[in-house]
């Protein structure tokens, strides 16, 4: 996979890849740090169908969502023979009470018997995070448990 980097003099830099389906997808990062997600048009690959401004948090959350694809697929595959066990992802929102607090503070295991098996941050995977891992907005938690347990976990992470 080749990421093409094109300098935009006076503005910033464009980084994009051409997908197997022929679309150009990437980002334009301006000097001040503002990032836009760009997707090329189908009938005119030179132009952009959309350029969506992303905050730093949104960009990292999006990166985590896309990056978690592989790890979630792997876990689902692992649990296929165990009926009732699901894998789900939770995004730590800016207004989540656990933004800036330790993973142990959620007492997730005790309260819901859900296991948090990985945290994705800025495209990096932190496997088996320890209770003293400090959560931050934009982190994506990968959790394994029963449907009810996962529902409860969602409640806890968004509202305490």
């Amino acid at each position: 996979m080749k990421v093409e980097e094109t300098p935009l003099p006076g503005i910033g830099v464009r980084k994009d890849i051409v997908t197997a389906s022929g679309r150009r997808i990437g980002t334009v990062t301006q000097r001040g740090g503002e990032t836009e997600l760009i997707v090329s048009r189908a009938d005119d690959p030179d132009a952009c169908l959309a350029s969506i401004p992303l905050t730093a948090e949104e960009a990292s959350a999006l990166g985590n969502l896309l990056g978690s694809h592989e790890i979630v697929a792997q876990l689902t595959e692992d649990h296929r023979d165990l009926p009732g066990v699901n894998t789900r992802q939770f995004l730590i929102d800016v207004d989540s009470p656990y933004d800036g607090r330790k993973l142990g503070d959620t007492k997730m295991r005790t309260r819901t018997s859900v296991s948090l098996v990985a945290v994705l941050r800025r495209g990096q995977v932190q496997a088996s995070p320890t209770p003293d891992f400090t959560l931050a907005a934009g982190d994506l938690l990968v959790a394994v448990g029963t449907s009810e347990g996962l529902d409860a976990a969602a409640e806890i992470l968004s509202g305490g």
Partner: peptide, 14 residues
Amino acid sequence: LGRLGNRETPVILS
């Protein structure tokens, strides 16, 4: 016009 990501934009800028 949201054209920063367009391929012709670097041409214009240079």
